[in-house]
Structures are given as structure tokens and as C-alpha cells.
Amino acid sequence: MQLHTRRITQTGFATWLACCAEIAAAQGIYSCVDAKGRKITADRPVPECSDRVQKELRPSGSVKRMVAPVPTAQERAAQEEKDKRAAEAAAREVEEKRRDRALLLRYPARDVHDKERANALGQIDEVIKAASKRTTELGEQRKAINTDFEFYKSDPAKAPAPLKRRLEENESSLSVQKRFIAEQEMEKRRVTMRFDEELVKLRQLWTLSGAVAAPKALGSAPAGK
């Protein structure tokens, strides 16, 4: 009976030792030299060496890995800023690829892009043409007003209020039309620049996708595009 009990005890002890060995192997052994020059060994990262590299050793004594020092608040802030910039750059890259796919889907070939350019600029030209026509009409009205003012050339202050009002309204309307035409000319340049920039990108996308991008002759398409 005692012999049987002793065997069970020995078996349990052996099992306990095996478990301890497995735990030690799993946890590893940490070794370092602290700021005071002391060599410290422990079964977990050594707090006294948090500011320097520590070695994690295998039970055999070989180096399993090097444990980096705990970063300072300044280092953590710098790393967080670096990670933030990397995330923003990755997000921009994803967005750029999305825009490229949408651009290529909208303009699968050069002639499609040229046609939309011509339509966009043509619409602006029609608006400018209408405003220019109105400007010409206002100019003719101004001539008639000036003719009426000839009677008061020696003393314009004596001109009747309705005539003065016609002159003010004409000058105001003419100023509005000229400003509107200038704005449309600026819009035309902006649209042209946008299509030029798109074309540069599209040429790259067409080449990468193997799309046929042969241009067609369009009268309103910019030369050399």
C-alpha cells in the first residue's frame, strides 16, 4: 500500500516538473544589464531594464528574441504621428485608385473624352455668345441715349430724370454683362485645364489597361491634345 502511494506521489511530482518545464519554456527567460551594470535574469521582462534592450532566452540559453525598450512618451507620440501619416497616405492611395477607376470607366477611349470636352466648352461658348449679343444691344441703346443727351450737351444736369435713369440702367447692365463674360472666359480656361489634366492621367490609364485611345479630329479640341 505504501509502495503504491509512493509511486503515485512520484508520478505526480514528475508531472508537476513537466508542467513547470513547459511553463518555463512558454514564458522564456529574460536577461539584461541594468543602468548600474547589474546582470538581471527573470521569468518576465525586467522593469529595471525597461529603458534598454532585453534578451529573451530559450531554456537552452540561446537567444529567442530581443525585446525592445519601452518607448518614452515623446517616442510614442512620434510613432503615433508616423502611423497617422502612413494611414493618411494609404487612404489617399485608395481614394486615388477609386478615382482612377471611375475616370477610366467614364472615358474608356480618347474620342469619348474629346467629345465631352467639346460639349462642355461649346455650352460655355453659347452662354458667352448670348451675353455678347446682349452687350451689343446695350451698346446700341447707349447710342440712342447719347443722341438724346445731345440736347443737354451744354448742361447735362438739365437732362430729365427718366433719361438719366435710362443712362444709369444701361451702364449698370453693360457692366454686369462684361463681368459675366469675363467670368465665363475664366470658367472656360478652368474647364480646359481640367480636361488637360484628365487627359494626362487617362493616357497612363489607357496604356496600363490596353485600351485603344486613338484621338478623333474634333474642330473644337485644343491643338496638340
Rank of each mutant, 00 (worst) to 15 (best):
Pro69Met: 03
Val70Tyr: 09
Val70Ala: 13
Gln74Val: 13
Gln74Met: 15
Ala77Asn: 07
Gln79Asn: 08
Glu81Phe: 09
Lys84Gly: 01
Arg85Val: 04
Arg85Asn: 09
Ala86Trp: 04
Ala87Trp: 03
Ala87Ile: 03
Ala87Pro: 02
Glu88Asp: 09
Glu88Phe: 11
Ala89Gln: 06
Ala89Leu: 05
Ala89His: 04
Ala90Thr: 05
Ala90Gly: 06
Arg92Pro: 06
Arg92Ala: 11
Glu93Pro: 01
Val94Ile: 09
Val94Trp: 08
Val94His: 06
Glu95Pro: 06
Lys97Arg: 15
Arg99Asp: 13
Arg99Leu: 05
Arg99Glu: 07
Asp100His: 04
Asp100Pro: 04
Asp100Ala: 04
Arg101Lys: 03
Arg101Phe: 14
Ala102Pro: 10
Ala102Lys: 11
Ala102Tyr: 12
Ala102Trp: 02
Ala102His: 11
Leu103Val: 05
Leu103Ala: 10
Leu105Phe: 15
Arg106Thr: 04
Tyr107Val: 00
Pro108Tyr: 04
Asp111Ser: 10
Asp111Trp: 15
Val112Asp: 02
His113Phe: 02
Asp114Gly: 12
Asn119Glu: 15
Asn119Trp: 14
Ala120Tyr: 08
Leu121Met: 14
Leu121Trp: 09
Gln123Phe: 03
Gln123Ala: 06
Val127Asp: 10
Ile128Glu: 06
Lys129Ala: 12
Ala130Thr: 11
Ala130Lys: 15
Ala131Gly: 00
Ser132Gln: 10
Ser132Val: 08
Arg134Cys: 13
Thr135Phe: 06
Thr135His: 10
Glu137Ala: 07
Leu138Asp: 04
Leu138Pro: 01
Leu138His: 00
Glu140Lys: 14
Glu140Ala: 15
Glu140Cys: 10
Lys143Thr: 13
Lys143Ile: 12
Ala144Phe: 10
Ile145His: 00
Ile145Gly: 00
Ile145Leu: 05
Ile145Tyr: 01
Thr147Gly: 02
Thr147Lys: 12
Asp148Val: 06
Asp148Trp: 12
Phe149Asp: 03
Phe151Thr: 12
Phe151Pro: 01
Tyr152Glu: 03
Tyr152Trp: 05
Ser154Met: 13
Ala157Val: 14
Ala159His: 01
Pro160Glu: 02
Pro160Leu: 06
Pro162Lys: 00
Leu163Gly: 03
Leu163His: 02
Lys164Asn: 07
Arg165Met: 14
Arg165Cys: 11
Arg166Tyr: 03
Arg166Ile: 08
Leu167Asn: 06
Glu169Ile: 10
Glu171Tyr: 04
Glu171Thr: 15
Glu171Ile: 12
Ser172His: 13
Ser173Phe: 12
Ser175Arg: 05
Gln177Glu: 09
Lys178Ala: 02
Lys178His: 11
Lys178Pro: 04
Arg179Cys: 02
Arg179Pro: 01
Ile181Thr: 01
Ala182Lys: 09
Ala182Ser: 15
Glu183Gly: 08
Glu183Ala: 12
Gln184Lys: 06
Glu185Thr: 07
Glu185Cys: 08
Arg189His: 01
Arg189Ile: 00
Arg190Met: 03
Val191Ala: 09
Val191Cys: 13
Thr192Phe: 01
Phe195Ala: 00
Val200Gln: 03
Lys201Ser: 07
Leu202Asp: 04
Leu202Trp: 02
Gln204Pro: 11
Trp206Tyr: 00
Thr207Ile: 07
Thr207Pro: 07
Leu208Thr: 10
Leu208Val: 09
Leu208Asn: 12
Leu208Glu: 15
Ala211Leu: 00
Ala211Asp: 10
Ala211Arg: 07
Val212Leu: 15
Val212Gly: 10
